[in-house]
Design a protein around this nucleic acid. Structure first.
Length: 572
RNA sequence: GCGAGUGUAGUGUAGCGGUUAUCACCCCACGUUGCCAACGUGGGAACCCGGGUUCAAAUCCCGGCACUCGCACCA
């Protein structure tokens, strides 16, 4: 935690310099919504670009882009409509509000599954005491859906929909297209960056809990029997791990990713790989490695879809904050979408090493008998016969149809056969490992970790120590004075800098040179180049390094090539 | 959502019934300076929103919104 007032000064800086500001401020503002200003939007752009680059580099991963408006059935299948419908009960005596299911923790095994009337009944029957005042006078449980509802269609009618609470469902919807794109071979991944929406009850803590936020998610589809097991030796650093507090490894451990997997703390090799890749990304964009830890969810805390879940937490002015969730979602989503939609396209194909021949008894239907006997139901009967897993020893027998009804099958209707089939492979529902990044929370910690208040010549001085990869500008060009042609030369140099691919410069000619260095330092510009009288004579400029204010004189051409190759530091 | 506190230029603040609304930083122009928030002159910029009380409200009261803290919530 920082010293007293640091948080306030950092927030002031972010507002003053157009990094992050409250939204709609002239109309009073809205809690949980923020704007990225001209400086912040550039930082955000670069963090997202870095994220896409990072995950692209592991191969077999593509970017997709889906709508934020999501039809209700999609979110019913994913479980969000139910899971997001927590109920709240209010104490009529002291007005305190609690989650209804939490009140029933001790009297019901799975209170989360109860409907509102059942909750009310059980709270009354068990005479649950208010944790706040001890009385037992409860109002009715009322639903609290954290999703933003909307409707598709401007006229009457239309379909119920919600703003997406996560981008992940978009990737699941695209699974068939992805499977085709990757020529029907697992593993592969799809990633997406974009907005997610959660109607938080009480957003707090600036950019930590937002109602509309930026997320970046990767869904990595694997064959659960053949998960990728990359070599983790590449990551030699030890990291802080907090395994399940109810499990065998409870307590804080400092281990390499490889050790964490070998010791069984991380259960899944692909999850371990993603923990390492997540750590690498965060450090790459400027998060302080000492302020990163991975915390395993207790089984009781697990999201409805997850099997094993790790949070990557970052420490800053708001304490330890979950910034990335890495979950093994198993086959939950694809299977549930298959069940709800009836689609058969949400599967993977596992080729056998050699074809397998299976023989099995079947009862082959005789269409000529079954058709007239069952008429409209004949199709369902035929289907049920083909799906029989156990062939009855004697006929007639009672067959259960898919709709629950029963029919009697007699000897004339079927032929008992011994069928031989050759199987070259089998269908299965892929499992999904998902790293989900909260971009705003990561940006906050980049800013927090980069913000330093130092003493300079007796005065207070502020530097935002952003890595060049996420700095709002790579370099600022400063004419020592905007006269004698120095301003014109500076503008020409600045324009050449801007034309370098991937490099963005800024220019500042207003007021004293020291003030301009300070302004650039404050928003994290790593390099400043100064055009002075000598520049007019010999085409050299001075390059100043933000972090130690060291200066070196160099040719403009040399500077431009070092900027292009990202090696300005080599000039010093 | 509950309780308490706080809302004054871009930022930090003074004013607490009657002021041309204070000060500093800031921003702009000109001059000066000629490599680390220098200086001079001039200029710019604010009482969260809506009601009420009062001759008069930034100031008192009520409601809303926002922020901070505590409780609750946060897949």
């Amino acid at each position: 935690m920082g010293n007293e007032g640091r948080l306030g000064r950092l927030n002031s800086l972010l507002r003053r310099r157009g990094v992050v500001l409250p939204s709609y401020e002239i109309y009073g503002g809205v809690s949980g919504l923020i704007d990225y200003g001209p400086v912040g939007a550039r930082i955000k752009r670069r963090v997202i670009d870095a994220w896409i680059d990072h995950w692209s580099s592991i191969g077999g991963v593509v970017e997709v882009d889906s709508p934020t408006i999501t039809p209700k059935p999609v979110l019913v299948a994913s479980g969000h409509v139910d899971e997001f419908n927590d109920h709240m009960s209010e104490c009529s005596s002291c007005n305190a509000v609690f989650r209804s299911d939490h009140l029933l923790k001790d009297v019901h095994e799975n209170p989360d599954s109860l409907k509102a009337p059942e909750l009310d009944k059980m709270i009354a029957q068990s005479a649950i005491a208010c944790p706040s005042c001890g009385k037992s006078e409860w109002g009715d449980a009322s639903p609290m859906n954290l999703m933003f509802p909307t409707r598709i269609g401007a006229t009457r009618g239309g379909r119920d929909a919600y703003m997406r609470p996560e981008t992940a469902q978009g990737m699941f919807m695209l699974y068939p297209a992805l499977f085709r794109h990757f020529r029907q071979k697992l593993p592969f991944g799809a990633m997406q960056t974009g907005k997610g929406f959660r109607n938080e009850i009480s957003p707090r803590q600036g950019m930590i809990r937002l109602r509309e936020f930026n997320m970046a998610e990767l869904e990595y589809f694997i064959d659960p029997e053949d998960p990728p097991t990359p070599d983790l030796g590449e990551w030699g650093s030890s990291v802080s791990l907090l395994p399940d507090p109810e499990g065998p490894h409870a307590g804080e451990h400092s281990l390499t990713f490889s050790e964490a997997l070998d010791s069984g703390i991380v259960k899944h090799p692909t999850v371990a790989w993603f923990l390492a890749l997540t750590w690498e990304f965060l450090v790459h964009v400027g998060v302080n490695p000492e302020r990163i830890r991975f915390r395993q969810h207790a089984s009781t805390e697990m999201a409805h879809y997850a099997d094993d879940c790790w949070d990557c937490e970052l420490s800053g002015e708001h304490g330890w904050v979950e910034a990335v969730g890495i979950a093994n979602r198993t086959c939950h989503d694809l299977l549930s979408h298959e069940e709800h939609s009836g689609s058969k396209l949400l599967r993977g194909w596992r080729q056998f090493d050699s074809p397998r021949t299976e023989t099995r008894d079947v009862l082959a239907p005789k269409g000529a008998v079954i058709g007239p006997a069952f008429k409209d139901e004949a199709g369902a009967v035929t289907k049920a016969l083909s799906e029989l897993t156990e062939i009855p020893d004697s006929l007639p027998f009672v067959l259960h149809l898919a709709d629950g009804s029963k029919v009697e099958i007699t000897g004339e209707m079927v032929t008992r056969k011994n069928e031989e089939v050759t199987l070259h492979g089998e269908y299965f529902t892929p499992h999904v490992i998902e790293p989900a990044f909260g971009i705003d929370r990561i940006i906050w910690h980049i800013l927090d970790h980069g913000y330093s208040e130092i003493e300079k010549e007796g005065g207070e001085y502020t530097i935002l120590g952003l890595k060049q990869t996420v700095a709002p500008f790579d370099v600022v060009t400063l004419p020592l004075f905007d006269k004698d042609g120095m301003g014109d030369l500076a503008r020409r140099i600045s324009s050449r800098i801007d034309s370098l691919p991937g490099i963005q410069g800024d220019m500042d000619s207003s007021r004293s040179i020291g003030r301009r260095y300070a302004r650039a330092d404050e928003i994290g510009v790593p390099w400043a180049i100064t055009v002075d009288h000598a520049s007019l004579e010999d085409g050299t400029v001075t390059v100043r390094r933000r972090d130690d204010q060291a200066q070196v004189r160099t040719e403009v051409e040399s500077l431009l090539s070092h900027l292009s190759s990202g090696s300005v530091g080599d000039l010093f």
